[in-house]
Amino acid sequence: MSASPSRAGIGQGRLAAFALPIGTIALLLVGWHVAVVASGSDLFPKPLDVLAGLVELVEKGLLLKYVVASLFRVTWGFGLAVLVGVPLGLVLGWWRPAFLALNPVIQALRPISPIAWIPVAILWFGIADAAPIFLIFLASVFPITVSSMAGVQNMQQVYLRAAQNFGMRGVPLFRRVILPAALPQILTGIRIALGVAWLVVVAAEMIAVNSGLGYLIIDARNAGKRYDLVVAGMVMIGSIGLVLDLLVRRLERIDSVRWGYGQR
């Protein structure tokens, strides 16, 4: 739904933007509590047990350590993917021989789940940080490359013609027209890739390393069926994913790219 000020009404104000999602979360928590109590399970935690688990992790100094470890890996893997994927995608979108040469390879590698690469990553990089970083890179580089490529290919021809008419060629043409014309789609690819990167770091940490939120979950289960800590880890993963998405969404409101996202 649009949030344009001209149509501000019920469900559209600033208050609603906070009240509605928080109300939903509160309802879910209550439902969760009631369901656990009703089922009589003594293994699955209630919301307050999870909160206690989180407090325990903070007191032991583990929570911050694990969050930082996970974010560190995402930063590296995702950062490398941006550095490689954006230029690669722009070249593929602009220069047809490169597209013809590389696109089939990219489309064949893309559907291979990063999880399937885990044994290979361990073989190549051991269980050091490099293995999950490699997996995150692999998972996020394809969405970024493909959307950057599409951004150039879908550019309206009239922009290119206008720029060429004014005598623009080479690097200025790329920097001042092709890149900005593709930027909205590039950012969309980056947002998707960041979500995937966060998904993959947790999966990678469950197998390959001994720190991070993914490790926390597996470790809590193996060392004494601490399901309160398992769910605490899940809650942290979800919350951080939400924050990351909100941050990237902010980028989409920058004036020079807003035109690419419809009239909202």
Partner: peptide, 10 residues
């Protein structure tokens, strides 16, 4: 241009 060629990012 008949179809508007103004750059939307500028």
């Amino acid at each position: 241009f008949q179809e508007n060629g103004v750059f939307p990012w500028l």
